[in-house]
Amino acid sequence: MSGAGLAEEGESEGYFASVSDLMVGVLFVFLLMLTVFALNFRDDSASLDRLRAELQRAEQAAQLERANAEAARAIAEAARIEAERQLAEAERQSARARAQEEEAARLRAQNEMLRARLQEAADKLRRELADREAARNALLQRLARGLEARRIQFILDPRSGVLRLSDAVPFPTGGSDLTDTARRTVTALGEVLAEVLPCFSYGAPRQNCEQADIPILEAMLVEGHTDRQPFANMTAADSQARNDLLSTARALTVFAQIRQQQRVLDELRNPSAQPLLGVSGYGQRRPLPEAMTLSEAHLAQNRRIDLRFILSARTSDEIRRLLEDIAALQQGGAR
């Protein structure tokens, strides 16, 4: 082989050797870079895992925060609704309190008016009662003066309104006829009644009456009474029934006598336009407290005639109007 050929061969081998070395070097560098990349990739994967874990924790924390925020909003909404409800309830309570206060004020005003009307009615009723009592006393006193002027004996009880004629109109035991003396007494009694009663009742002309005289009488009863002696051969019940009839007969005898002689008495009326004069018989059931024994004097006292003057219970128109006003106020307060 020539020297040139050896030189070319040597150069060629040297070139391949250099390329091989270069390739080896490049491969080494590549392997080194791959190693570095692998190491970096491993580190980046670990960092990525950490980041992913942190992101997951952050998401969980965010979800918890959102849940807490939702719960807080729900609580706040519930609180707002409750506050609105309480405010509405407070307004209703306030409106109810105002309505109750207004109703209380209305009731107080109504009670004051009712109290005033009641006081007015009570005062008016007291005045009417006082006027009636005064009128009845005037009636009894005028009757007493008339009877005294005619020398007729009587007993006057102003509290019960009774004029008693025990001794003036006597009756025999078991009898109802008037004696001549009793008849004259009844005639005088009728005259006095005819003079006085028209001033205190309706229906007859008012003559010689005083300004204070007012129609106050509901009735004037001629009352008959008997003593307590039993009738012979009768049971107690039959004897009492016989005394009832006898007392009524005595009252009717006096009643007929005064009406026959004084026709004006039949014209007298009470406030209901009913006849004023009437009759009642009590038998032996109302003996005089001062004549309770069976002595002849006490028995004679109980065979008697009483005149009872009963006051009218009717109220005046003014009292009736007041009572109607009071009833209306009471109904208004009970609604």
Rank of each mutant, 00 (worst) to 15 (best):
M1D: 06
A4F: 04
G5Q: 05
A7L: 13
G10H: 08
G14T: 10
Y15I: 08
L22E: 10
V24E: 05
V24A: 14
F28A: 13
F30Q: 12
L39M: 07
L39G: 09
F41C: 10
R42Y: 10
D44I: 15
S45A: 09
A46H: 07
S47K: 14
S47M: 08
A53G: 04
Q56L: 13
Q56M: 08
A58Y: 10
E59H: 09
Q60H: 10
L64K: 09
R66P: 00
R66D: 13
A71M: 05
R73Y: 04
A74G: 05
E77D: 10
A78V: 02
E82A: 13
Q86W: 01
E103L: 15
A104M: 04
A105K: 11
A109W: 08
E112T: 13
A116P: 00
L118P: 00
L118S: 11
A121F: 08
A122N: 12
D123I: 02
D123S: 12
L125T: 15
E128K: 06
E128L: 11
L129S: 12
E133T: 11
A135I: 01
N137E: 11
N137C: 02
A138P: 00
R142Y: 01
I152Q: 12
I152S: 07
D157V: 10
D157T: 08
P158W: 11
D167P: 00
A168G: 08
V169I: 15
V169R: 07
V169F: 05
P172C: 08
P172I: 01
P172A: 11
G175R: 09
S176C: 15
S176P: 06
T185H: 08
V186Q: 04
V192D: 05
E195M: 07
L197G: 01
C199P: 03
A204F: 05
A204T: 02
Q207T: 03
C209D: 06
E210Q: 14
A212P: 02
I214N: 02
P215D: 04
L217I: 01
E218L: 14
A219D: 08
M220Q: 01
L221I: 03
E223N: 13
E223M: 14
G224M: 07
T226S: 14
R228T: 09
P230L: 13
F231E: 15
F231R: 13
F231G: 14
D238F: 04
D238V: 04
R242P: 01
N243S: 14
L245Q: 15
S247R: 01
L252K: 11
A256L: 04
I258P: 02
R263V: 03
L265W: 11
L265V: 05
L268Y: 06
P271I: 00
A273L: 06
P275C: 02
L276N: 02
G278F: 02
G278P: 01
R286Y: 10
P287V: 13
P287H: 11
P289G: 03
H298V: 03
R303C: 09
I310N: 00
L311R: 00
S312Y: 04
D317R: 12
R320G: 03
R320S: 11
L329R: 06
G333A: 15
R335I: 04
